[in-house]
């Protein structure tokens, strides 16, 4: 969805995550304080707890309720405040709950069709292959002198959620900069394995000759567009490889092609 793909959505999500982290941080402080106060902290609103100080102070009990205190600390503090100010919390008259039935009827209506639709939908083979002749469209690439390029289109072994890795890369000497960079543009339609490290080995043109131990580590394959510095020993003959930390295996090894 375009909304979720937008940078605004990403920023909003990161803001939300920050808010949740702050909430949980405050919860940690509140939980430690409540547990440190023992019965005065927890039992003020709980008549049953007040009757047994020994049970309240058991380490096992505190450990068990600790995560809940972090997550629900405003409610606990509110109950405590109500109790201290002499206001009781209405428990309501016990009643038979009909929400079970409503929930299951909703699941009964919605879940089977969704499940069947998911099963009838097959995985696609991914987007069309990248045209090897296609020039990099990245603005940054145009500002340097292209030295070599490579197109990676690798089928990945089974066992991961990403079936195919596709990206283009160009080695360039940036204008006004003595450094040499590897500029990568990942195929936007497909996710990339975030654990992929890029390696470069000079003076090798055959995948069978590639040796990880002799290669330079460039860094993690960036999402979208990104630049990684090439080592000073860069020569035009060399091979780019991707290594998966999670799988602990080489995903691809491609020779750089001089334009």
């Amino acid at each position: 969805m375009s909304l979720l793909l937008s940078a605004g959505a990403l920023a909003a999500f990161q803001l939300l995550l920050g808010g949740i982290a702050g909430y949980l941080g405050l919860g940690l402080i509140a939980a430690i304080t409540l547990l440190a106060c023992g019965n005065r902290g927890l039992g003020a609103f709980d008549e049953h707890a007040l009757r047994n100080a020994e049970a309240k102070s058991s380490i096992g009990f505190r450990v068990l309720i600790f995560p809940g205190l972090i997550a629900l600390w405003p409610f606990v503090l509110w109950r405590r405040w109500r109790a201290r100010s002499g206001q009781s919390v209405a428990h309501g008259r016990p009643h038979i709950d009909r929400r079970h039935r409503v929930s299951w009827i909703l699941l009964l209506i919605a879940l089977p069709p969704l499940f069947i639709a998911a099963m009838l939908s097959g995985r696609t083979a991914g987007p069309p292959p990248i045209d090897p002749q296609l020039a990099l469209s990245a603005a940054g690439a145009e500002t340097g002198v292209p030295l070599a390029r490579v197109t990676v289109d690798a089928e990945l072994p089974e066992g991961g959620y990403v079936e195919r890795l596709q990206f283009r890369a160009i080695v360039l000497r940036a204008d006004g900069d003595a450094g040499i960079w590897l500029h990568t543009v990942h195929a936007a339609e497909r996710p990339l394995p975030p654990d992929t490290l890029l390696y470069w080995q000079p003076n090798v043109s055959d995948a069978e000759e590639f040796a990880l131990a002799a290669a330079y580590l460039l860094g993690p394959l960036p999402a979208g567009e990104g630049r990684l510095p090439m080592p000073a020993a860069y020569t035009s003959d060399g091979m780019l490889a991707g290594y998966s930390l999670a799988r602990q295996e080489l995903l691809f090894a491609e020779a750089l092609q001089t334009p």
């Binding site: 309720i65 809940g68 997550a71 309501g92």
Partner: peptide, 14 residues
């Protein structure tokens, strides 16, 4: 996290 009876009393049954 709220499976303990403490939470039942604290949150109230509903």
């Amino acid at each position: 996290a709220t499976s303990h009876d403490f939470w039942l009393a604290t949150l109230t049954p509903p």
